[in-house]
């Protein structure tokens, strides 16, 4: 009995060894190349700029941004942040932490930048940026750049110079301009603005035709509603009307290049003005919708040309 089981074990040993051998196999060999997951994205800025050198440069994709900015990642993600490039710029005694957010679109970068801009920020000449003690920030193309000092009182002058240089590199790379209409939504709403601006990169308000939407909540006499604008033309509005009808919109209307209707008890409409799509969402009644739309139209027509 013992002899027979020993023999059986003897016959079984080689397959077990072969299995052990085979189980060690992997798809990738790190001695030959790195698996694709480990390959990081490229830093969009050079490792050295004049007297400045970048230490610990790193790129984090959107889903890992929290590692650097725990708790704040959602803010940037809602503007369509793609990645966060970080590092520390060092030059003769100066140390500035870089937080460089890259967005899907320039509007996203500008939106996130506007949302964080402090009231006392001193505007930078020639570029979209500001400086406060301990911080300089720039919105350039698809990038939103922050340079933070170790101490809150630090003079931002050296960082401003660095930010300018970086902005010229970044803006050139992205080659993207922010459309005018998108910038002054908050100005349009003026005192009636009831909430912060929002940026909805795609599928805004549940409509697949609305992408790159900037919106703001506005309070008027007949009630609150959301004003929005996005790139597009009459075709976008037509597609929106079609989607609205297809999803079960009620009392739909379509007149003078403007379409709208009610769905789930909330009224919305969209139309084309000044080469972009504008509209109102989440109005409680048809009257409120009309009031908001005329207010929006009036303010858009009578607004002063921004300098």
């Amino acid at each position: 009995m013992l002899r027979r089981s020993l023999l059986a074990a003897g016959w079984l040993l080689p397959p077990v060894l072969a299995l052990l051998f085979a189980l060690k196999g992997r798809h990738y060999d790190e001695g030959f190349y790195l698996p694709p997951a480990a390959a990081a994205s490229a830093l969009p800025v050079p490792g050295a700029l004049g007297a400045w050198t970048l230490e610990g440069g790193d790129v984090l994709p959107a889903d890992r941004m929290f590692e650097k900015i725990d708790g704040k990642a959602d803010y940037y993600l809602q503007y369509g942040a793609v990645e966060l490039c970080s590092g520390e710029w060092v030059a003769d005694g100066q140390r500035w932490d870089m937080y460089l957010y890259r967005f899907k679109e320039a509007q996203g970068a500008r939106g996130a930048y506007n949302g964080e801009r402090p009231a006392d920020g001193k505007p930078l000449e020639g570029i979209e940026g500001y400086a406060v003690p301990g911080q300089a920030a720039v919105s350039a193309g698809c990038f939103y750049l922050q340079l933070n000092a170790q101490t809150a009182e630090a003079d931002p002058a050296p960082a401003v110079e660095l930010a300018r240089t970086l902005a010229s590199l970044l803006g050139g790379v992205a080659g993207d301009e922010v459309p005018d209409a998108a910038v002054d939504l908050a100005v349009l709403a003026g005192d009636a603005a009831a909430g912060t601006e929002e940026y909805l990169p795609e599928n805004a308000f549940g409509f697949s035709v609305f992408a790159g939407v900037r919106s703001i909540r506005v309070r008027l006499g007949p009630g609150e509603a959301v004003w929005f604008t996005c790139p597009g033309d009459a075709a976008t509005v037509a597609a929106y009307a079609e989607e609205l009808a297809a999803f079960g919109g009620e009392e739909c209307f379509d007149e003078d290049g403007m379409a709208g209707g009610a769905m789930f008890g909330s009224w919305s409409l969209a139309g084309v003005m000044e080469g972009a799509v504008w509209g109102v969402q989440e109005a409680a009644t048809r009257d409120a919708l009309s009031a908001h739309w005329s207010a929006l139209r009036e303010r858009l027509e009578t607004r002063e040309e921004s300098p």
Binding site: A40, A42, L43, P44, V45, P46, G47, A48, L54, G57, R102, C142, L169, V173, A174, G175
Partner: peptide
């Protein structure tokens, strides 16, 4: 999509590369 702006044609460092997005 990304541009090898320095040390071409081999590159070899992330700082030789810029995003091009085109």
């Amino acid at each position: 999509s990304r541009l090898l702006v320095a040390n071409g044609p081999t590159g070899g460092s992330p700082s030789d590369v810029r995003p091009g997005d085109v």
